[in-house]
């Protein structure tokens, strides 16, 4: 679905005369491959290059060096720009910056309308997308009366209505309360499982990563770790050095190990840890 080959991106800083004053390399020779239908998470501290990388996936940015292919299309090919953007949709952190319609269903219809989709088909897509994110009953509401989590789901529906094969979510839950956070993540998981949409989730919440198929960890513009959540979260100390964290259940297991109890590495959730603790207690 997505393939990066030595993808490099430099931000140029210009002085007052428009000459290049300094260059900051945000993404540095990244090679990666994402299979269609996968649920991918990207972790990394602020400034590690993950958002810059994400913006390449729907060609908001194009590589300074190297290449990025979306469904076999080179993002540098300007003729493919609209096909790429239709194929790979993007949802950002702040719900208020992404909603333009005055009524929920109009907002969701904006994308397909721009693509020149016939009216009947637009309404069909609006209905499908809103029910996929669990927001159909709000179709006639004004977006500014919705909660943060509901707004993000409307933004996801807006992307869904373009019939993308892939959705990139760049910290979609950073501004949400616990309920809103859970509803957005559940929606992304459902779209992945039921509609086969490739999901690329960028987040600082480690708990949201636990169910991903594959995790990439970025630092200084490079992919420095990758693997399943269990492989990644087994490396508590390395992650801490990268300014990251592990889920709380993983951290607790790690603390107990340090106290001398024998527990496996990379425990990911509460249920798993409770089972292991009960087994351990029976043996003691």
């Amino acid at each position: 679905m997505i393939r990066a080959e030595k993808l490099t991106f430099d931000y140029e800083r210009l002085d007052e005369e428009g000459r290049v004053e300094s260059i900051k390399r945000a993404v540095d020779h990244v090679d990666l491959q994402i299979q269609a239908g996968a649920f991918i998470a990207i972790l990394g501290h602020n400034g590690s290059g993950k958002s810059t990388l994400a913006k390449h996936i729907n060609a908001i940015l194009t590589p300074t060096e190297g290449t990025l292919f979306v469904d076999g299309m080179d993002t540098k090919d300007e003729e493919k720009l609209w096909s790429i953007r239709q194929d790979a949709g993007m949802v950002f952190q702040n719900p208020d910056n992404q909603i333009i319609g005055t009524v929920v269903e109009e907002d969701v219809g904006f994308g397909p309308e721009n693509l020149g989709v016939p009216t009947d088909e637009i309404w069909k897509r609006v209905e499908e997308s809103l029910s996929a994110v669990g927001m159909l009953k709000y179709r006639h509401h004004s977006p500014n009366r919705l909660s943060g989590g509901q707004k993000q789901r409307v933004a996801i529906a807006g992307v869904m209505a373009m019939h993308p094969r892939c959705i990139v979510l760049d910290e979609p839950t950073a501004m949400l309360d616990p309920n809103g956070r859970a509803s957005v993540i559940r929606t992304a998981q459902k779209l992945n499982r039921e509609e086969g949409i490739t999901i690329i989730l960028i987040t600082h919440y480690m708990e949201e990563v636990v169910e991903a198929d594959h995790v990439f960890v970025m630092d200084d513009g490079k992919v420095v770790m990758q693997g399943t959540p269990r492989e990644i979260f087994s490396k508590v100390e390395e992650l801490k050095k990268l300014r990251l964290d592990v889920p709380q259940a993983t951290l607790l297991a790690w603390e107990l190990k340090k106290k001398g109890f024998s527990l496996p590495d990379g425990i990911l959730n509460i249920e798993e840890l409770v089972d292991k603790l009960c087994q351990l207690k029976r043996k003691m």
Binding site: M175, H204, R243, L244, D245
Partner: peptide
Amino acid sequence: DEPTAGLDPKGR
């Protein structure tokens, strides 16, 4: 008011 929103775990 939510001083850590959007920060990485260490920054938080």
